[in-house]
Nucleic acid binder design. Structure first.
Lengths: 202, 202
DNA sequence: GACTGCTTGGCAGCGACTGCCAAATCGCAT
DNA sequence: ATGCGATTTGGCAGTCGCTGCCAAGCAGTC
């Protein structure tokens, strides 16, 4: 499982790398297909492994958990979030900064259809929702120092205020994406986000 | 497992009920003790059952899942929330209504110490956090119609706006309780909540 | 004391996940 | 091409949360 450098053209150097990439894609596609066909909870690792033509053990070596089989590297979201916001000039306010971060993360999705499919799966499966919310909470904690730095330290607990602002931004993203899914992907999520935030901030 | 009526004095009618109540308390206390002693993930059901003097099977009959062993009937929270808010007069605004709901839920805790202990466990254990957030999301959905009814249906998506308001209230509760735990339970959560909300709503 | 019915415990099993070891496979030097 | 070392794979057993099933035990009733 050593990570080898790839050639500039994107074609992997060794046969092993090529095989790995192939297996990875095969597993991911099989998983997503089965998930949408029969639901996440109703799909077992054994079934995915069987239909993808690998052993369970190997499948777990490629993707550590069942959730990871959803693809769309959720772990990258956190990185993009913090990167985007930390690269913003210091004058940019907290709300604007968070909006930029949210927009950057949403821009990561390949296509509207894929995003809708994943969102739908996420919103309709309790176990997935739980895992996602947990991951998101960690992103929020990572954002804490960045947002604190941009807030004018007036009275009271700065930590609490920063946390509240961050959590509110995510809350609005939540409300927006849930409404978006309910409407079958009609409209733009960022518009909904803005609408939500405007409502909250009166 | 039939639920028998209890006498007015609180003393259960039959011997069975008494034994059940005893066993239930014993299990709950053992679980909470072990959780705080050695952590939630590091405590196995087998260990709790052994130390509580019941079989695993029986333990699972009393409490369906490991999370339920945390006690503090989280399922009741949702009921209290919706009840409190739906009993409020129609003139009460959404923010005020949600504040009342939050206050009512917080008032459910037996003592400050117990609440702090549970909150600490919750905030420090990823798996617990995930489950809790998921449950909370369901509460939010339950609240949706109640809050929608209190909002002036202006332009845009009422659903999105209501969701945003609810999610924001919970976000502030989150920020408040996390800060509260970080400060080892100093101060009042509702004060922190108000501070968070004030910051968000500018 | 026997009968009814609730409760309990034990066992087997499922599904996600991990550690361990042997076998297959690749890449490379000779 | 052959052999060798590194890597990948598969299989097996085991853990942990959780469930279904069945037999044994015990409270309450006649």
């Amino acid at each position: 499982m050593k990570q080898e450098a790839e050639t500039a053209s994107g074609a992997p150097a060794t046969l092993w790398d090529r095989a790995r990439q192939l297996a990875s894609r095969e597993i991911l596609e099989t998983a997503l297909r089965l998930f949408t066909e029969q639901g996440y909870d109703e799909t077992t690792i054994a079934q995915i492994a069987r239909e993808a033509g690998v052993s369970q053990r190997t499948l777990f070596r490629y993707f550590g958990t069942k959730e990871d089989l959803l693809g769309g590297n959720q772990d990258r979201f956190g990185q993009v979030l913090t990167d985007t916001i930390s690269e913003l000039p210091a004058e940019v306010g907290v709300w604007e900064a968070l909006r930029a971060g949210v927009a950057a993360v949403l821009a990561l999705h390949d296509s509207r259809e894929q995003a809708l499919e994943r969102f739908r799966l996420l919103h309709n499966t309790a176990s997935l929702r739980a895992g996602w919310l947990e991951k998101r909470l960690r992103f929020q904690e990572d954002l804490l120092p960045l947002i604190e730095a941009r807030m004018d330290a007036a009275t009271g607990s700065v930590g609490a205020k920063a946390r509240a602002v961050i959590a509110t931004a995510f809350a609005c993203l939540d409300a927006a994406s849930m409404t978006w899914v309910d409407n079958d992907g009609k409209g733009d999520i960022m518009d909904l986000y803005d609408e939500c935030l405007a409502t909250v901030r009166g």
